[in-house]
Amino acid sequence: MASAPSPDPGPSGGGTALSGGTDLPGPHDTAPDLGFEYHPPTVTRSAKLLITGPFGVGKTTLVGAVAPLVLRMDESMTEASVGVDDLRGTPQKTTTTVAMDFGRLHLNESLVLYLFGTPGQARFRPLWEGLADGALGALVLVDTRDLDHSHDVLDLLEEYGTPYAVAINRFDDAVEYPLDEVRQALDLDGSTPLTVCDARDRDSCVRALITLVEYLSARQLESRP
């Protein structure tokens, strides 16, 4: 299900705008109305960042605050579940469909950035392979009212080797803890950036993303011979 917050009409029925030829589509071959715009033809490259964190921490809110277009896609996830299937004793597998939202923003004429809202609970591990692969890094949102629920996501990031920065999404009723205490509670490495943001506020989210990419950039410089 695609949802486009902007009312841009887009090149609807883009598939009907074929440049003639003998291969005219039949009635079922018309490209469906996507409900959102294609990229301008100058866009040829993409980059991906993950926006992750525990349940309900504000991932979707942040993606919507930063990206002018937010879409939703389904991903299917196959897990071995408890119990065995029939007498043969083969492990039973269940397939779950998970809806994931992602935002896109054009950073210059040719480069588009994708922000993937990525659930950070351990049970979503099967989704991570496809998400973490190729990601430049991740911004981890945490809620100081419930830091314990952030350990799963930090484990997943370590497992997939995705570099990350942490941003406290400050909720109105949350007590303000000194950053050092939060850093300790999360057992963060001294070099991992830790900032504060408001997932509803675009500027503060863009600043948190800048902090992340500055860190990624510095890290890359260091690792060069």
């Binding site: 490209a31 469906p32 996507l34 409900g35 959102f36 990229h39 040829t44 939703r72 992602f102 896109r104």
Partner: peptide, 14 residues
């Protein structure tokens, strides 16, 4: 055929 799309956008649209 309508233009440039990312894999995730094709999944969303279809």
């Amino acid at each position: 055929r309508g233009g440039v799309l990312a894999v995730a956008e094709i999944a969303a649209g279809l």
